[in-house]
Amino acid sequence: MTDLAISVPMDDRTAWLARHYRDITSDYEDASVLASCELCKANYLVTHDKRLAAQANIAAKTATEMADLITRAHGE
């Protein structure tokens, strides 16, 4: 899985950027996720949170949708 996904640590840069996402969301956890996506230049956000998915500036998928996408991409 580490070839397909990464975990992003919560550091000072992420916390700083999350504060600037207040225009988009008042939820600090959602802001932290959006900041992390931006800092790591993520291609996808995998979440079941529909509100967070709608606020994301990258493609958002559910876990099932992402699993299907990975399966199709790798022909398995």
Score class of each variant (00 low, 15 high):
C40P: 09
E38S: 12
L45K: 08
V33M: 05
L39Q: 11
S32R: 09
A59D: 13
I58N: 02
A42Y: 05
I58P: 00
V46T: 01
D49E: 04
K41W: 04
A53Y: 06
V33Q: 12
K41V: 05
L52E: 04
K50Q: 11
L52N: 04
S32V: 14
Q55C: 12
I58S: 00
K50V: 14
K50L: 08
N57F: 07
E38W: 06
A42S: 15
A59K: 13
A56H: 07
N57W: 10
Y44E: 02
L45N: 05
S32T: 14
A54K: 08
D49L: 10
N57H: 15
A31T: 03
S36Y: 01
A42W: 02
T47Q: 10
D49W: 04
Y44Q: 01
L39G: 12
A59H: 14
A31Y: 02
S36Q: 07
C40R: 11
Y44A: 09
Q55G: 05
K50E: 10
K41T: 09
S36E: 01
Y44M: 08
V33N: 10
A53P: 02
K50A: 15
Q55K: 14
Q55H: 08
C40I: 13
K41Q: 09
A35S: 14
S36W: 01
V33A: 07
S32W: 00
C40G: 07
K41L: 04
N57Y: 11
Y44L: 06
A53R: 09
Y44I: 12
L45A: 05
Q55Y: 06
L39V: 08
L52Q: 08
C37V: 10
H48Q: 11
N43F: 13
V46S: 11
K41S: 11
A54P: 04
C37W: 01
